[in-house]
């Protein structure tokens, strides 16, 4: 079962995509590990490692890097929010 990954705002633009479906790689069990896995693709994907104060959400709840990720989850990465 895949996970759904979403990207927003400047990160979405840097990556050139707003979403992807990914079979959760073996050994990737946390948001932080998933972030590192994606950043390791290199080129534009290094934005996941270099974006200052990158935020993440799992199933639409803001979480920290230590939060668990399991098959079927919706995981989102985005820069700090600037609404209001």
């Amino acid at each position: 079962m895949n996970i759904k990954i979403l990207f927003f705002a400047g990160l979405r633009e840097a990556l050139g995509t707003g979403s992807e479906a990914l079979a959760l790689p073996t050994g990737i069990a946390t948001v932080g590990a998933l972030r590192d896995h994606l950043a390791a693709r290199g080129e534009a994907w290094t934005a996941l490692a270099t974006t200052k104060n990158l935020r993440a959400a799992v199933n639409q709840h803001m979480v920290g890097a230590e939060a668990a990720v399991k098959p079927g989850d919706e995981v989102a990465f985005f820069p700090p929010v600037t609404g209001g």
């Binding site: 705002a9 989102a76 985005f78 700090p80 929010v81 600037t82 609404g83 209001g84």
Partner: peptide, 12 residues
Amino acid sequence: MDYLKTRAPFWK
């Protein structure tokens, strides 16, 4: 308003 500014996912 203060929480909205830091917790609601909007980007300008």
